[in-house]
């Protein structure tokens, strides 16, 4: 069983103890095309589930990244700020956006698991 959860806005969240790591899915990075810019929140910011956490831009599009869960920002990925291509290269891993200290783990239950998300993406094609 995977500890990773997905939203229908194509964000993923992976939880380790009370720390939630958030990024965009591989499907999302493919749809966006070459990522050229990432705007990340300040560490210490409080986010509620559904709040805008970050912005990701390709040449022709700008998208908001919404936080799937609530919590305080404890870390942001400086690597993708400096080298946005990292999002395209490893969206589900090194291309993560922010880490939150989770305030309400029950929010995770509302999100899709890997199989459900795969089915959801398949339905979009």
């Amino acid at each position: 069983m995977s500890d990773i959860r997905f939203t229908d806005q194509h964000e993923w969240v992976r939880v380790d103890a009370d720390i939630a790591t958030i990024g965009i899915t591989d499907y999302a990075q493919e749809q966006l095309g070459d990522v050229v810019f990432v705007e990340l929140p300040e560490v210490g910011k409080e986010l509620a589930a559904g709040d805008e956490a970050a912005v990701v831009e390709s040449v022709k599009a700008a998208s908001e990244v919404y936080s799937p869960v609530s919590g305080e920002v404890v870390d942001v990925n400086g690597e993708i700020e400096a080298t946005p291509a990292g999002v395209n290269e490893d969206a589900m891993g090194d291309g993560w956006f922010v880490k939150l200290r989770l305030t309400d783990p029950s929010e995770l239950d509302k999100l899709m698991d890997e199989a459900a998300y795969a089915e959801f993406v398949a339905s979009l094609e």
């Binding site: 095309g33 070459d34 050229v36 810019f37 831009e57 390709s58 040449v59 946005p84 291509a85």
Partner: peptide
């Protein structure tokens, strides 16, 4: 065609 990705990055 011009490399718009490089221009924006």
């Amino acid at each position: 065609r011009l490399d718009e990705t490089a221009a924006a990055r």
